[in-house]
Design a protein around this nucleic acid. Structure first.
Lengths: 338, 338
DNA sequence: CTGAAAGCGCTTACAG
DNA sequence: CTGAAAGCGCTTACAG
């Protein structure tokens, strides 16, 4: 169908080697350059990706593995990734795991079969074993949003401990002492880190940890809803403030807040992780710890491309500081009460 | 690095032609089959995508062009598209236009350069000229979420007129007579259709159209916010019900509703398009017209693959009926009042 | 700077 | 059913 490098060469009366040299940025005489440029335009010539890929053993394609493309936290990062990748000639293949480890393995295999040059992974459940299998096969991998021990690849994640610490500290500075946290279970990397930050802040400010105020359940809408319901049903153990550890849990909590007719911040102060749509729409606007998706996406691509080019071998771990946004969803407490 | 078909053939002591035949589903003797299967496993052989693509002149890759990957309406469809594509061996390259026509052209060119076999487009602004340019070059295109006249490709869209009609009808059946609509401008395909459905319902039920109740502005959060503010500021022209024509306008409207302390449905009845996160979280749950993203994604892939295989030439237009969900966000009016 | 030639890994008529 | 051989479009030493 389309014109080939041969057609261009013929039209110019020169060899394909020279045309190829021009295309790849080499030096050719002024006259040849002009002729080639004209011929390319005239013939609407495009380099054949497959021929080039075959010869170069590079696909200029990056695989992206993600739990779900309807998760706006992930897609915010994906959007940045595309922006960084396309100018360098890379495209990406996005695969969803739907949070199934079985599908995750299938999709990883799919990506490798497609001949991607590197893989960006941000799924909640990724095991060291699976990562190591592919790293040993020579795949270049960068993991986003979690850190797995004993794996020789790059990691990039939000500084969750610091984020949760700062949030808890905000409550404390406004006089709160009964501070609850709604977070995910042990298997969720960021949930655990955020719980750690919460505990550390309490400790630093000499507030005794009340295990009854730590609600751990599934890291999603239902988990948030159920935890919140449990929290308010325990009438003689009510907190004055709550930190909610991710966006989906927050959505669940908001549904519960509405059902229970709880007023924010009069009845309860709230800070949530992830500054997405809901935070804006809820009244009052929710205080939030917002992960820097731009920074994360940009750095992830940098790390991966460096790995593709260079001979970096050591595992690098990057922590991105979140930004905290405080609104009227936090009540200032009297120092005497509580 | 990886093993090639040559390695497999050598290990089996047969020709590469036979191995190729096996790989592509042809008949080989039982013994050869066994040997080949073993060799493939032993060598961890994978077909080289580029060699195959070069030879076959098919990339098994589909381009997807979308305004934004953080738009959950779009990503719901994208998710279904991947599910349909992967089992058939296709992968997809997703490109964002960020609603810029310039970027749209660049990305389309990017996709064609990458050698995609077909393109799925769902962007709000796609011109007949641009589409025709690529169709003439032999690209296979399916357009989702809008219909463009004078273009020889397939289209798939929600039956917007019917959706808006049904919503308006619901208001009317509950006794509403002053029904407003907040929608997008003329350039937005679905906005125009939804306005049409609204008008048609009023007409059918003999309710005179009040132009003052038609709010048209930008088809996004700000447009929804501003329109809603304008609507309530016009105190002697208040409607009892409002239909909001897309998700982002609804978010804007909800922010305004909160600011103005308007009670739904006591002060105002609401139906919105697109049954996404917000509808669940808002109290009371918003009535909605939900577009069938599963159906749309599935049909889109079907149409495209048919086009790739066969010799379909005529332009096909598929309309998918939306589902309407009625909640307590609509007040039953006394027949006497208003 | 330019060109002839080999070769990347695969598929596919074609002959047997 | 099997195999030898051509060729897809490109890049890259190599010689000039």
């Amino acid at each position: 169908m389309g014109a080939t490098i041969k057609d261009v060469a013929k039209l110019c009366g020169i060899s394909i080697a020279t045309v190829s040299k021009y295309i790849n940025g080499g030096n050719v005489t002024k006259e040849n350059r002009k002729n080639i440029e004209n011929a390319i335009k005239q013939l609407d010539y495009r380099v054949n990706t497959f021929a080039r890929g075959l010869k170069m053993n590079r696909s200029m394609t990056i695989g992206v593995l993600v739990d779900s493309v309807t998760n706006t936290f992930y897609t915010s990062i994906i959007s940045v990734i595309e922006d960084c990748l396309h100018p360098k000639g890379y495209s990406s293949i996005i695969c969803e795991t739907k949070e199934s480890e079985e599908i995750q393995e299938q999709k990883l295999e799919f990506l490798v079969n497609k001949g991607v040059d590197g893989i960006l992974i941000f799924t909640t459940h990724i095991s060291a074993e699976l990562l190591n299998t592919y790293i040993q096969k020579g795949e270049h991998i960068v993991v986003i949003d979690s850190v797995v021990n004993g794996v020789d690849c790059d990691f990039i994640a939000t500084d969750n401990i610091s984020g949760a610490y700062q949030a808890t500290e905000q409550f404390i500075l406004k006089g709160h002492k009964r501070i609850a946290i709604i977070t995910g279970e042990e298997k969720n990397f960021s949930a655990v880190e955020r719980l750690k930050g919460y505990k550390r802040a309490l400790e630093d400010y000499r507030i005794e940890l009340d295990d009854g105020l730590v609600y751990q359940s599934s890291y999603n809408l239902n988990g948030g809803y159920n935890s919140f319901k449990n929290m308010v049903s325990d009438a003689n153990n009510l907190p004055s403030a709550v930190l909610i550890a991710n966006y989906f849990m927050t959505i669940g909590a908001v549904i519960a807040i509405n059902e229970e007719n709880i007023n924010i911040p009069e009845d309860l102060s709230v800070i949530c992780f992830d500054d997405l749509e809901l935070s804006n729409v809820f009244k009052p606007r929710l205080s939030s710890i917002s992960q820097q998706t731009d920074e994360m996406g940009k750095r992830a691509v940098e790390l991966l491309l460096e790995r593709l080019d260079g001979d970096i071998k050591e595992s690098r771990i990057i922590r991105v500081a979140p930004k905290i946004l405080i609104t009227t969803s936090i009540k200032k407490m009297d120092n005497d009460s509580q």
